[in-house]
Structure formats: C-alpha cells, structure tokens
Amino acid sequence: MNASRRFLIGLAAVAGVTLAWEIAGRTHLVEPLLLPPPSEIVTTAIDLARDGYRGTALWQHLALSLARALGAFAAATLVGVPLGLAMGAAPGFGAVLDPFVQFLRPLPKLALIPLVILWFGIGETSKVLLIFISAALSIIVGTAAAVSTVQRQRIRAGRALGAHGLALFRYVILPHILPELFVTLRLSFGIGWTTLIAAEMIASDAGIGWMVVNAGSYLRTDVVMLGIVILGGTGYALDLALVGLQRWAAPWSGRA
C-alpha cells in the first residue's frame, strides 16, 4: 500500500469517527458534559484563543509546554546519546551504569515528583527535569542497544580502510547507528511528551498539561478535550518532524 493511499484511508477514518462523535453528542446519545461533541470543542478553541484560559492566552499555554518539553528533550538528547554511545562502546562503563538506568527507566515518573519538589522546588527546573529524566533514560538504553547491533563485518571493513579508535567511531559506527538512533529519539520523545502532564501538575499555573488538569477539576470537559486534542496533535506533528529529519539525515534507513 503506497503512502498517499494510507494517508487517505487514515483521513477518512478520522473524519468518520469525528462525524459519529458529533452525532452522538447532538442526539444526546452521550451526555455532552461527559463527552462534548467536536463542534463544541471548536467553539471552545475559538473562545480560548480570543480570551485565554485563566489569564493566559492559549498560544502561551502551548508555547510554554513546548518550551518545557523541547528544552528537556534537547538536553536529554545531548546527555543521553553520548552516554548511550559510551555504554555501548565500553562494556565496563555500560556494566556500571546499566543497573541504575534499568532501575529508573520503568519507574513511573510521578513517583519522583515529591523528591524532585523537595530537591529543586516548584519552579521550572523541576518540571523540565522530570521530562528530561524520562526521555534521557530511554535515549540511553536505545542508543547503547544500537551500538551493540553494529555488524562485525562492517567494523572490520572500516578498520581495514584505516579507521581506528575515534575515527572508526565517528566515520563508521555513528553513521551506522543513525537510523536506529532516530527510532530511539522518536520513542523517547513520545515518552517525554507523556511526562509533560505529570510535570505540569507540579504547582503550575500555565501550560497545556496544567490546563487539562485544572479544567478537569472545574468539570470543563470541553477544555479538557481541547487540551487533549492539542497535546495529541502537537505530539503527532513533532513525531512527523522527526521522521522528516530522519529522511533527510539518514535517507538509506531501511534500505541497506
């Protein structure tokens, strides 16, 4: 099945579900307070875009959430990739870090909130740190695993052509794992984005994640739904951006 066909089918599926949802709301098949229909969410979006939510413009909520997530994600990439590379390349180093990484990675990050607040307070640091931790851990694990998949034959080819030590790493191993690195980054970004809500639960007064939690306590399900649509849509768009980046940086992915 080609890409444009897949896209059209996906689009039709989304349109169908949206339509069914709208009809269910209008005919009171489902209580609109529990599941507001799409048209109401659109109205809410227009209202919030004009008036803001609790004193902050909608775009500012989104920008704040994006800044937190992207900042944390950038830091996680800068820290996680080199650490993962080192763990994969130096088994001794890997053996030292591995138990800690494996212990922390599956831990629900919500459990860390009390400690993070105690250590770093309720400011931006705590929120960014929480997203950073969850993304970095999965980047480390994915990168280390990618390094261990480099075929022996390819390393030998590199060595035979005069690449040793750092040159081997830079010109053979690193490009070799690039496609897999992008897969890891995509998965890790998803995990980091998921942590956003948890992070914005820490004594926040803005951000899309905070908006969802706050609106929930006032039974503003339309705002909750809007927040969910924005969170999901933004996550989707950022993933597509990463896929685009991968196609540009590693066009041979899956073809060699």
């Binding site: 034959q153 390819r154 030998r156 080819a157 035979a160 052509l161 005069g162 053979v172 490009p175 070799h176 690039l178 590693a250 041979w252 073809r255 060699a256």
Partner: peptide, 15 residues
C-alpha cells in the same frame, strides 16, 4: 589499507 579486503557481503557504507 595496504592490505585490501573484499568480503562476500558488500560492506560498503550505505551513508
């Protein structure tokens, strides 16, 4: 590189 090697599988670098 003063001993050239050619393997069975092409070990060209796809990047």
């Amino acid at each position: 590189p003063d001993r050239g090697i050619v393997f069975q599988e092409a070990t060209l670098f796809p990047w």
